[in-house]
Computed example of a mutant assay.
Amino acid sequence: MKKLINDPADVVSESLRGIAAAHPELRVDHRHKIVVRGDAPVEGKVGLVSGGGSGHEPLHGGFVGLGMLDAACAGEVFTSPVPEQISAATTAVDGGAGVLHIVKNYTGDVMNFEMAAEFAAAETGSEIVSVVTNDDVAVQDSTYTAGRRGVGVTVLLEKIAGAAAEQGRNLAEVAEVARRVNARGRSMGMALTSCTVPAVGRPTFALSDTEMEIGIGIHGEPGRRRLPLASAREIAHLLVDPILADLDFTGRDGVIAFVNGMGGTPLLELYLMYNEVVTILDDAGVRVARSLVGPYITSLDMAGCSVTLLALDDDLLGLWDAPVRTPALRWGI
């Protein structure tokens, strides 16, 4: 294993120290391992909290800032944050208008966010609402979930719900926007290689040089099937066709097309894949209104990609275009 680390046990805490040094506009609570927007809590604004296991950077800490998240909780690598972390983050961003928890559908995440919400509400009397993302069409149930996994739509939801909160919408309205995004988005991923968890020191699963895994999860969970390595064009069909079969994306308002890198795939290849994806969408009568290409929800050093489509309406498009200023996503400012 070749990694830019010191002690594997200190990877998350030392990475958070790097975030604090690189982004002084943010606050990092090193005791609870949470990243908080520098001006939080913002009085009268709904606070947005998300989080999950580390190893998916820039998700979630890289999306803290104006127009997106107010706080992110960093669990250990591929391990849910604990209720104490989530509760501390919730309290830190509560500006009196309630707090929205954005939770990926993994059993540990769902359970710990539920416990934290109960604890924080009892302590502060704040209203807390949770929205769970479950956009992965690859499997119905998987190693860590009951139901579909929450993957690429999480990034789009954090941006769009964050913009709604920034506009001053109330908690019920922001939660409705978040649920609408989740309902209108679908994702599918694949891997060319496994990832290597620093504390383990070896690949999570074995793939030969002539194999690929279709439908993987962001923790290296197995997917739909293992197949012989194919061309980018064939892989694009394997990812996009199941998404189009699951939901009608041919509406007049178009879609956000998001091609995400899993951590070990260069942008050269991701843009090549994006070209294949939009060709398929054009042939299927799906209009691309906005795009996002890059490593935004990763799996450590895994080579591979995922595709996410989000069916837009006028409101969601306006919220997507609204200003955002975070370490990993920034425009309009």
Rank of each mutant, 00 (worst) to 15 (best):
E158Y: 01
G318I: 08
P295R: 01
A21F: 13
A230Y: 02
E118H: 08
D135Q: 09
W320H: 10
S126T: 10
R149N: 03
D94E: 14
P83H: 05
D313E: 12
N6I: 15
F63L: 12
D29Y: 00
R252A: 12
P8T: 15
V36Y: 03
D70G: 11
D321S: 15
V77Y: 04
A97I: 11
L16C: 01
N6C: 12
D246T: 12
G152V: 07
D282A: 07
D141R: 09
V42G: 09
R224I: 14
G201K: 06
A230G: 12
L316I: 15
L66E: 15
D282H: 12
E123W: 02
N6T: 15
M111F: 11
V132W: 06
A206F: 15
P222E: 09
F63V: 00
V129Q: 09
H219V: 13
T79M: 01
E176F: 06
P198E: 07
L272I: 07
R184T: 05
P83R: 05
G62M: 12
S50D: 02
G285A: 00
D248R: 10
S126C: 14
S142A: 14
L268I: 10
T154C: 06
T154H: 00
G62P: 11
I333L: 14
T143Q: 11
H30F: 09
A172G: 00
V36D: 04
I128P: 05
H219M: 07
G285R: 05
I297R: 00
R330P: 05
L329K: 06
